[in-house]
Amino acid sequence: MAAVRADDLPSMHTFINGLERDLDAVIAGLTLPWNSGIVEGHVNRIKMIKRQMDDRASFTLLRKQVTLA
């Protein structure tokens, strides 16, 4: 982080600022054995079903598609 601060790259400075703001979460994400892969997979599946429906149906039909898939 110190090396990036020494360079003249404003976009990288913004990235480092974001890392420093949430440094505890960054460290935990890189060191702890847990992840949210299963949850992300379910979210991805639901978004795919919603994209396939292309706003042609109601929330009720989306719920049926998700529970039956």
Results as ranks from 00 to 15, higher is better:
D54W: 05
L9Y: 05
G37K: 10
S58G: 15
K64I: 08
K64E: 09
T67A: 10
R5P: 01
N44Q: 08
D55Y: 12
I38N: 11
A6R: 15
K47A: 02
L61W: 01
I27E: 03
W34L: 11
Q65W: 01
K50L: 11
M12A: 15
H42T: 05
T14H: 10
R45G: 00
V43N: 00
F15D: 03
D24C: 04
R56T: 02
D8L: 13
K47I: 03
R51T: 12
Q65N: 06
A3K: 14
R63K: 12
A2S: 13
L23W: 13
L68G: 00
T60V: 10
V39S: 09
N44E: 07
L30W: 01
L9F: 06
D54K: 12
D22V: 07
A2L: 14
D54F: 14
N35P: 03
W34P: 00
H42Q: 12
F15Q: 10
R56I: 03
T31L: 14
W34M: 09
T14L: 15
N17I: 05
I46T: 03
G18Y: 07
F15K: 09
K50Y: 06
G41Q: 08
V39M: 05
M53K: 12
H42Y: 10
L30N: 05
A25F: 03
G29H: 05
I16E: 10
T14R: 15
N35D: 15
V4S: 08
A6E: 13
K47L: 14
H13E: 06
V66H: 03
N44H: 09
V66R: 07
K47Y: 04
E20L: 15
L9C: 06
A57M: 05
V43D: 00
V66F: 03
T60Y: 05
D24I: 10
N35S: 15
R56Y: 08
N35M: 02
S11A: 15
D22A: 11
S36G: 07
L62N: 02
T31V: 12
G18I: 04
T31P: 02
L9G: 02
D24A: 14
L61I: 06
A69H: 12
L23N: 06
M48Y: 02
L32G: 02
G37Q: 07
E20K: 14
V26C: 11
Q52Y: 01
L61G: 00
R63Q: 06
D8W: 07
V39Q: 02
